[in-house]
């Protein structure tokens, strides 16, 4: 029995279809979701979502962080941004990483929430570079 996967970004509904398994980059480690999973709400880090049909990966998308709601019947991913792996550009990813690192340097001097957010951004940009096959 497949689980219903939905990936939505603030700008649109990106994907909605049943898959056999989906691996999402949860904040504390990748998580495989099958049908009948315990209800969970998890935070996501930047990383790659992999869709499985049978034991084959059919699709891969990069997400720049967000949240996921898992219930026994479905898995809803609220992504800040989601891009199919094939459409990622290496130069864009590297530019973002450089930008995020600069922002982190700047945030370093102040303290608190801003720094955490900047660190998240660096991490997510780094995942983006990795996803391009670097």
């Amino acid at each position: 029995m497949p689980t219903n996967l939905e990936i939505v970004s603030p700008e649109k509904l990106l994907l909605s279809r049943p898959v056999d398994m989906v691996v999402i980059p949860a904040a504390e480690g990748d998580m495989g979701v099958l049908e009948g999973h315990t209800p969970m709400i998890v935070a996501l880090r930047g990383g790659t979502i992999a869709l499985y049909e049978g034991d084959r990966i059919t699709d891969q998308l990069y997400v720049a962080g967000g949240f996921a709601e898992v219930t026994p019947e479905r898995c809803t991913v609220l992504a800040n941004e989601a891009i199919p792996l094939a459409e990622l550009s290496r130069t864009e990813a590297e530019r973002r990483l450089a930008e995020a690192e600069a922002a982190y340097e700047a945030a370093d001097k102040r303290e608190g929430v801003l720094e955490d957010a900047a660190l998240d951004r660096v991490q997510s940009a780094r995942a983006m570079v990795e996803a391009t096959g670097g």
Partner: peptide, 19 residues
């Protein structure tokens, strides 16, 4: 549904609220 949270509720909330 009773949800489990990962990491805990407050960390998620802290990230969710700006969104």
């Amino acid at each position: 549904a009773q949800y489990e949270f990962e990491p805990d509720e407050e960390t998620i909330l802290e990230k969710l609220l700006p969104q």
